[in-house]
């Protein structure tokens, strides 16, 4: 959709039911914890601040700049939200953004909303936090450190989140590992640069206009160490697993098969041939034709019914 900055909102139908449900559960637990945390830190200011900032991230995704050949750089926003508000609040902000995108604009599916929240709101934020804190620890809390940290955080959040998307697609049997992982990683390495540049621009503006807002270096949010660790583990896991999975996909595909994801592929050759060449054709084709006739009858019946009731209303209403 026109507001979608990155190919990261998975639509329904691309993840297996098992993967979707597992990620729903993980997301619900983490977002629930974030709600509790932020409630403690911000108190009653929570609702207006989180709500308006989520709307700002959504609107901020409309801001773009021309790169080359008609393409443009956009903002996803996980990094800037993390830097300005801390990880827990950023998780809530990004969860709201991703939910509205799915519920209202069909940017990302409903059954896979848990997975999209996991990728953009949880992985994106945890990785951005880890990268930003790490850079700040090295450079100290100076302007240059904040800007470099912003770029690194933005790039990593996009890149690692995209690896997470790729892994989920592979686990669901939707994309082959040896193509999906390098493709996603390559494209998002570039998109991440755009995200990084915009994030740096935004931080530079805020540092000169309201330096107190970029307060991260000063006060460390409660539970920050945990988020840092989670961010590091997620990054390491995905960075190590992805090249392994794409060069030696057998292991991953074996796992997928064991879980029964690929079962739905009706894979083995010996089943396909009898199905399609001799007896299968008649039953499968017949069933499809019957379903087609039934479906057409339903649609036709409904449209006739609607047309009839409309005409009745018009004639009776004058």
């Amino acid at each position: 959709m026109l507001l979608s900055p990155v190919a990261m909102h998975i639509p329904d139908g691309f993840l297996s039911v098992l993967v979707s449900i597992v990620l729903w559960i993980v997301s619900i637990v983490i977002v629930g914890y974030a709600l509790k945390r932020v409630g403690k830190d911000l108190g009653e200011r929570q609702v207006p601040l989180m709500g308006v900032l989520a709307a700002a991230i959504f609107a901020g995704q409309m801001l773009n700049f021309a790169v080359a050949g008609g393409t443009s750089g956009h903002l996803m926003g996980a990094a800037i939200a993390t830097i300005l508000m801390g990880p827990w609040a950023a998780i809530l902000i990004m969860t709201s953004v991703v939910s509205i995108q799915a519920l209202i604009f069909q940017d990302g599916g409903l059954l896979v909303l848990g997975a999209n929240i996991f990728n953009m709101a949880i992985v994106g934020v945890a990785v951005a936090y880890m990268a930003y804190r790490t850079v700040l620890r090295i450079t100290g809390n100076v302007k240059r450190g904040i800007l470099i940290g912003g770029f690194v955080a933005a790039w990593f959040s996009i890149e690692i989140a995209s690896l997470s998307v790729a892994m989920q697609l592979v686990f669901s049997g939707t994309s082959p590992a040896k193509l999906a992982i390098p493709a996603m990683a390559g494209v998002h390495a570039l998109i991440g640069i755009g995200e990084g540049l915009i994030t740096v621009g935004a931080l530079a503006f805020l540092l000169s206009a309201r330096p107190d807002l970029v307060k991260f270096g000063g006060t460390r949010p409660i539970g920050g160490r945990l988020v840092w660790l989670v961010g590091l583990l997620v990054t390491l896991a995905l960075v190590i697993a992805s090249p392994l999975a794409s060069t030696r996909p057998d292991g991953l595909e074996w796992v997928a098969k064991q879980n029964g994801f690929l079962e739905t592929a009706r894979g083995p050759l010996y089943r396909i041939i009898p199905d399609y060449l001799v007896p299968g054709i008649s039953s499968e084709a017949l069933a499809t034709i019957a379903a087609g006739i039934l479906g057409t009858a339903i649609v036709l019946g409904v449209s006739l019914g609607v047309a009839y009731s409309r005409r009745n209303r018009q004639t009776s209403g004058g």
Partner: peptide, 22 residues
């Protein structure tokens, strides 16, 4: 990089206005 910085400045501006609005 300059164009990106401009877009970034706009994003920063937007956040600032939003925080003040909130």
């Amino acid at each position: 990089a300059w164009r990106a910085q401009t877009a970034g400045g706009m994003a920063g501006n937007l956040f600032l206005r939003s925080i003040e609005r909130s």
